[in-house]
């Protein structure tokens, strides 16, 4: 460093290794580091719920993989109240990620959907001609029931429909 930009020595006696006040500052920083690590350890078990989220997304991924067939997958939502719009959108975004490059739709592909409310407003129950027109080979319906999420599947072969 140039002399104009030099940091002044803190210790009155630079030959002394660590001044008492200096040691107190380092101890304070040690406390900072300990607090941070303790918070992370506690947060990892009680706040972030990493394992629970891993399990949840593994289940959701399995639902989408089960629903994917040829062509695109259409996702339809039933019984989702407005305060659960974010959940419906999260499910869809997870499906898009899991199945990529396989296409996933949840509404008309020409309608932009950014917020969860826009997303749910665009979601509808499509009829087979519409599905055929958009090259959609399967439909996954999520129904929100009091005891949890129920997934049902339909697969389509050309213009004929088979439920299973």
């Amino acid at each position: 460093m140039g002399s104009k930009n030099e940091l002044p020595a803190v210790s009155a006696n630079p030959s002394c290794d660590v001044h008492r006040f200096d040691a107190a500052i380092y101890l304070f920083l040690f406390l900072c580091i300990c607090v941070a690590i303790c918070l992370d350890v506690v947060g990892r078990y009680f706040r972030y719920q990493v394992q629970e989220r891993e399990n949840l997304y593994a289940q959701v991924d399995a639902m989408f993989r089960k629903g994917a067939w040829h062509g695109a997958l259409y996702v339809h939502y039933v019984n989702f109240p407005q305060n659960k719009n974010w959940m419906a959108r999260d499910l869809f975004t997870r499906g898009v990620y899991t199945l990529y490059p396989h296409s996933v739709l949840a509404g008309d592909p020409s309608v932009p959907t950014f917020s969860p409310d826009q997303f749910m407003a665009a979601n509808f129950e499509p009829d087979p001609p519409w599905l055929f027109q958009h090259d959609i080979g399967s439909e996954l319906t999520f129904t929100l029931q009091p005891d949890g999420l129920v997934d049902t599947y339909r697969r389509f072969v050309f213009s004929s429909t088979e439920d299973h």
Binding site: E6, L7, A9, V10, S11, P14, S15, D17, V18, H19, F21, D22, I25, Y26, L29
Partner: peptide, 11 residues
């Protein structure tokens, strides 16, 4: 923080 901490050895 790092630039302001007391030195542990003479410069």
């Amino acid at each position: 923080v790092g630039l302001q901490l007391p030195r542990d050895t003479p410069k």
